[in-house]
Amino acid sequence: MSLVAKRYAQALFDTAVDKNIVDGMFDEFSTVIDLFKSDSDFMRLLLTPSMNISEKKEILGRVFGAEFNQYLRNFLNILIDKNRFEYLVEIEESFRQLVFPYKNMVEATVLTVVPLDEAQRMTLEEKLAKRFSKKVILNNQIDESIIGGAVVYVGDQIIDGSIRNQLNQMKTNMNNSRLQ
């Protein structure tokens, strides 16, 4: 993570805390990042050196208009002014790292063969919240190589309930019993 990203993220976080809008800022910034990640052409457009600053700001204003809070809109404009828009994704990652401990939240990734339905997702979030004593933000990723079950990553911890892992454990046990 670059020092530039950390500094801008800290400034945005401090503003959000000062104005008591951490939740809203987090949600809106996540929405902005999702848009840029899903539409790389939009990001490239705003990074185009030949486009002047006022044109870039006008585009941002049209896309993120009045439904976004003024502090986030101002922040995005400052990134344009200071030629720091290329750091947007890194800034959001740094911002997320500041918000999670502040809000007693943790991000978890669960790998499954098929997408979790809403009931499964909610049940898993509740179980993880109890285990870690934090609100859990769950990302579901598909990985057919696990064969079945699930693998959950929370911080530096791994909970591997995959069929692939169970088969590997049986194989290891069988190999160890042959050696004895």
Rank of each mutant, 00 (worst) to 15 (best):
Leu128Cys: 06
Lys135Tyr: 04
Ile147Tyr: 12
Glu144Asn: 13
Asn140Glu: 05
Gly148Val: 09
Asp117Ile: 11
Val114Phe: 03
Leu124Asp: 01
Lys103Asn: 06
Arg121Ser: 07
Leu128Glu: 08
Arg96Ala: 06
Lys134Gly: 00
Gln97Gly: 05
Ser133Lys: 15
Asn104Phe: 04
Thr123Met: 11
Leu124Arg: 14
Met105Cys: 07
Asn139His: 11
Glu93Phe: 01
Ser133Arg: 15
Ile147Pro: 01
Lys134Arg: 12
Lys82Phe: 01
Pro115Tyr: 12
Ile137Tyr: 02
Thr109Asn: 11
Val106Gln: 12
Ala119Pro: 00
Thr109Cys: 02
Lys135Ser: 07
Glu92Lys: 15
Lys82Asn: 08
Glu107Gly: 04
Asp143Ser: 11
Leu111Lys: 13
Lys103Cys: 02
Phe85Lys: 09
Arg84Tyr: 02
Gln141Gly: 06
Glu90His: 02
Pro115Asn: 14
Gly148Met: 13
Leu124Cys: 05
Ile91Gln: 13
Glu90Met: 12
Val151Lys: 14
Lys135Leu: 02
Arg121Gln: 05
Leu116Val: 03
Pro115Val: 14
Glu125Ile: 13
Thr112Val: 10
Gly148Phe: 09
Met122His: 06
Glu92Gly: 09
Glu125Ser: 12
Ile91Phe: 05
Ile137Cys: 03
Leu124Met: 09
Val106Asn: 12
Ala108Asp: 00
Ala129Pro: 02
Gly149Val: 00
Arg84Ala: 00
Ala108Gly: 00
Val89Phe: 07
Ile80His: 07
Glu86Phe: 10
Ala150Met: 14
Gly149Asn: 05
Gly149Tyr: 01
Val110Thr: 12
Ile80Phe: 08
Asn104Val: 09
Arg131Asn: 01
Val114His: 01
Val136Trp: 06
Gln120Glu: 02
Leu116Asn: 05
Gln97Tyr: 04
Ala129Val: 04
Phe95Tyr: 14
